[in-house]
Write a protein that binds this DNA or RNA. Structure first.
Lengths: 182, 182
DNA sequence: CCCGCCTGTTTAGCATCATGGACAACAGGG
DNA sequence: CCCTGTTGTCCATGATGCTAAACAGGCGGG
């Protein structure tokens, strides 16, 4: 029962939306090697595997720590939030299903057309949030979705991400992140 | 600047007090391979590395997560304890320097010659303690030392360990562990 | 001393990995 | 349709990991 390096790598590559050739180019290896590794037809040397992961980038520790079976949920519909408040106080928990969360809070507001920048952000930690007003386009790795009021998100900040207000009115988000990057 | 797999493996082997040949036998590889890996003269395939670590045993994730530069202090002299109490209450903290501790308390007493068993203990979590009276021989991995009143210890319980009263009088220890094994 | 047993290191040779390039399949545009 | 680009897979060859066995040094006992 050996480690499924192939599946792990294929998963990582899928998350980041890279082709075998693109990853190979970034890592400085051949596309054939990526293919062979993903099919488990070779057991790469740790040197090679590190070169490949450097192209993502991702550390060997992260790679082997990766929980492959539980590809964590990224997007949450309005009804997928868990109400943990009571009475006058309504606390609707995002990513309540996800174990070992670690975060803190922000209230963001985006003018029409505004974005977090032309390039995607990447930093340590995790972040999540809820759209309060307006419509925001959120891109996380290879996935992208426009979220409206009541919808939410939660993902690892190490995955490249970008926010952009695609509506005509201001957009407000209640967001949280840890450890604090600002 | 690649990962120093060699040093990591050598460190792991030292902690568990295994020779290259002994580890090789348990892992089902040759002693020569262990030698070559530790000298960084080869970059082992993840398959081989996994086989080697299975002989410890240790997961690939643990191996790459290992904090190699900070080999945590195991033994503490009488004057290496940190006083955090005040007034009539004296709380002298063990391993105060160590970040991210996680534990709870016990008061142990060993009769002359008593020990925790013929085989070394291994379990999850961390444990530490202080000798109050008598003399106790503590073996942790490859290291061993006789501790007297005022001296202390703190280590990860995953390292094989054993207590034995080598004195003529009863021995008392204030110990702590987490998560609770008893 | 010599012997046996341990330690880690080295080397020749074989097995496996990694490369560079060819290949088929698929998609979008002219 | 062709053309051009993409995708992933496959193959021959050179590079490298891995094994088996020999080697050198250390340590204790006869």
């Amino acid at each position: 029962m050996s480690i499924d390096v192939g599946a792990r790598l294929r998963g990582v590559r899928a998350i980041y939306g890279l082709s075998q050739r693109e990853l190979a180019r970034r890592a400085g290896v051949t596309n054939g090697l990526i293919s062979l590794i993903e099919q488990n037809r070779v057991s790469p040397s740790v040197g090679s595997l590190k070169k490949v992961l450097d192209g993502v980038p991702m550390s060997l520790a992260e790679f082997f720590t990766l929980d492959i079976e539980a590809a964590p949920q990224v997007f949450y519909g309005d009804d997928e939030l868990v109400e943990i408040g009571s009475g006058d106080v309504s606390l609707r928990l995002v990513a309540a299903q996800r174990a070992a969360r670690q975060l803190s809070i922000l209230h963001e507001r985006y003018a029409p057309g505004a974005a977090t920048g032309d390039d995607a952000l990447t930093h340590r930690g995790e972040e999540g949030g809820v759209v309060v007003r307006g419509r925001i386009e959120l891109t996380v790795g290879a996935g992208s979705r426009v979220l409206g009021p009541g919808e939410a998100y939660y993902f690892s900040s190490t995955i490249p991400h970008r926010f952009r207000n695609v509506g005509r009115e201001p957009c407000e988000i209640i967001s949280a992140s840890a450890p604090p990057t600002f």
